[in-house]
Each structure stands twice: as structure tokens, then as C-alpha cells.
Design a protein around this nucleic acid. Structure first.
Lengths: 173, 173
DNA sequence: ATTTTATGTCAGCCTTGTTGACATATCTCA
DNA sequence: TGAGATATGTCAACAAGGCTGACATAAAAT
């Protein structure tokens, strides 16, 4: 059923080339399916509020990082300010996020989730946590650490320090 | 910096409730960042062909499962036939995928990647494999298995048997 | 005083998802 | 055989969420 998809790797040089270049189809495809289902949980709830996945991402990171600036948020999401502005404006209008003028630099906007915003963000995070916990249950305790290190290592090395700081706070390695 | 986002879980009942409901922010966020970077690799190459991520997904699963039917592909991707048809038509026109009439059931269309299609699919899979191998290097051998089992368990239980069959072939457990 | 920076906004476009309606060929079953 | 179910294709319209380019403003930095 599955075709010989790696003809170029059959004959030639021995050694690690073969292993290094043999596609890791299992991890590629499992990642796709896992992500597909993982992000689908919040969708139903977001619908009730008239929000989409883009709103979820913004609300999540603002709720997790009170006082986040526009520039920092753009760097996290890797989208343009025009794209961000569209969903952010809606979140502010519907009172899920509040934007205050920066104190030290008054050009900046500091973003904060409102109580309503924090509540929704928490609700969605719990939903995803339930799925994560179900997956981790029945696995050895070291498994969670392995998964965490794997995901971190998948990230672009350029960003990994930044992500580490964002996710774990000011810890090292 | 990080707010007290779980006030509702502080006082009440003892026991596992607290742990079960404390958001797993680390795994939630690492999953987001890892996926963000993981899917970005192929983008540059796809651009050269005038394709997007939707084309990539279709090409990947057809290349991996020669003879796939439209219905099976729709079930994998979880999109509507109209959405699929748009990108599939382009892949066929540009000769990356071939559609043959079913033999046993002539209403069906059996999809096959052309040599050109297989080549592109392989190129993209290798690119993602390089990132995966970089992440796995430096981890214990059991780590890969832990990651694989974790991702599989994240998937909706309804789909997990189907995914298992698709990814690993006709194996059990 | 000038330039740079942080943000906002308008306009238009692209990709990729959606719904609903309808057409065709083929298979299944009574 | 004939009716209905099934697999696919297609048209039209729309929505979400990306993008680019251009331009505006206020505040900081030099």
C-alpha cells in the first residue's frame, strides 16, 4: 500500500545518512493529527463569543503576560500589526482585554486581560489541560519532561531562549 | 508577571482536583510555538511552486497512501469537499497528483502522487525530519517513544484507531 | 530640531475554510 | 428493472485571518 518513497536513499553511501534522511513520517503525521484535535476543543466555546482561534491566541498570551506590549505580542504570534489589530480591537471592544498607555514609554500600549477575559482564557486553558492530562495519565512521570524538552527543541534555536523565558519565567536551561 | 489565574482552585476540596485543573501552561504554549516553527519550514519551498499549506497536506497524505479516495482524504483532513476540491484541482492540473477511476467502484477516484509529486512530498518531509532529528538528538532513545505515545494520546479517542492504522500501518495497540 | 520608534488605520488582496444548491455517474437493493 | 443511496464535481457567495503598501500621530531619542 505504501509506495517506495525513498528510492534516492537505498543504494549509495552507508552510515548515518540513511537514518538521518529517512522521513520520520510517524512524528510528522502524529503532530498534525494531535494539533488538529488539540486546537479544536476551544473552537466551540469561542464560537459562543463570536471569537475565532486568532482571538484565542491573543487573549491567551495577554492573560498569561499582563502588561504585554503590542511589539512583544507581534513577536510571539509572528503576524503583522494589521492582522493583530483586527482581532485585538474586537477583544477590547467586547471588554476582554484592556489597553493602557505605557508608564515609562508613553508610546507603548500595555495590554491586560479584564476579569471577563481572564475567566475565558482560564476556561479554554483548562479544556486543553484536560486533554493533556488524559494523554499523560498512564505514562511514566519522566515522559512529561521528555515531551516538554522535545517540543522546546523543535522550536527555532533563535527563538528558543525567548520562548523558554516566556513559558517558564526567568529560569535557566 | 504571571497573574494568579486559578483563584477558583485555591480553597475548596482537597485531592486531585487541584492538580487536574491547574492549567498546563507549559505544554499548551510549547505546543503552539513548536507547531508554529514546524510548519514554517515547508512554506518557503511551497511558495516556489505556488502552493500553500493546504496543498502540502493533500500532497503528503496522497503520496503516503497511494490509491487514497476522496472520502478518505476528506476524513483525514476534516475539511469540506469544496475546500479540498480547490487545492486538489490545482495539484492535478500542475501534475503533482493523478486521479484514476476506481476499479471495484467506478464512482470513486483513486489518488496517486506523480513522480514529480512524490519528489516534492519527500523533499518537504525530509525538511521536517531534519528538525525532528535535531530535537531528538541528545535525548534518550526512549524519549522518541514517549513523544510518539503522547501525541497519539492527544488525538480524539474516536479517531485514534484510524490514525494509528494510517500512521503505523496494520499494527495493533 | 530632526529623526526614529511604537502604534493605529485605510484599502485591497490572497488562501483556505464555510454553507447551500444542484448535477452526474454508479452502485445497491427491493 | 427501477428507485434510492452514494461518490464525486461544481457554482456561487461568504467569512476568518493572513498579507502588502501607504500614510498618520505621538512620544522618545539623538
Amino acid at each position: 500500500m505504501v509506495p517506495d518513497a525513498i528510492p534516492a536513499l537505498k543504494s549509495h553511501h552507508p552510515g548515518k545518512d540513511i537514518l538521518a534522511e529517512t522521513p520520520a513520517y510517524d512524528l510528522i503525521e502524529l503532530f498534525f493529527f494531535a494539533y488538529r484535535d488539540f486546537v479544536s476543543d476551544p473552537d466551540r466555546i469561542l464560537d459562543e463569543y463570536g471569537f475565532g482561534r486568532a482571538h484565542h491566541r491573543v487573549l491567551h498570551f495577554v492573560s498569561r503576560n499582563p502588561g504585554l506590549t503590542i511589539a512583544e505580542l507581534l513577536d510571539i504570534l509572528r503576524i503583522t500589526k494589521q492582522s493583530l489589530n483586527r482581532v485585538l480591537k474586537e477583544l477590547i471592544e467586547k471588554d476582554f482585554i484592556e489597553s493602557r498607555m505605557g508608564t515609562s514609554d508613553r508610546r507603548q500600549r500595555l495590554l491586560f486581560a479584564t476579569p471577563q477575559g481572564r475567566e475565558l482564557a482560564l476556561k479554554l486553558a483548562k479544556l486543553q489541560t484536560r486533554r493533556i492530562m488524559r494523554a499523560l495519565s498512564g505514562m511514566e512521570p519522566e515522559a512529561k519532561d521528555a515531551v516538554s524538552r522535545y517540543l522546546l527543541s523543535l522550536i527555532d534555536p533563535d527563538s528558543s531562549a525567548h520562548v523558554k523565558h516566556l513559558v517558564f519565567g526567568s529560569e535557566e536551561t
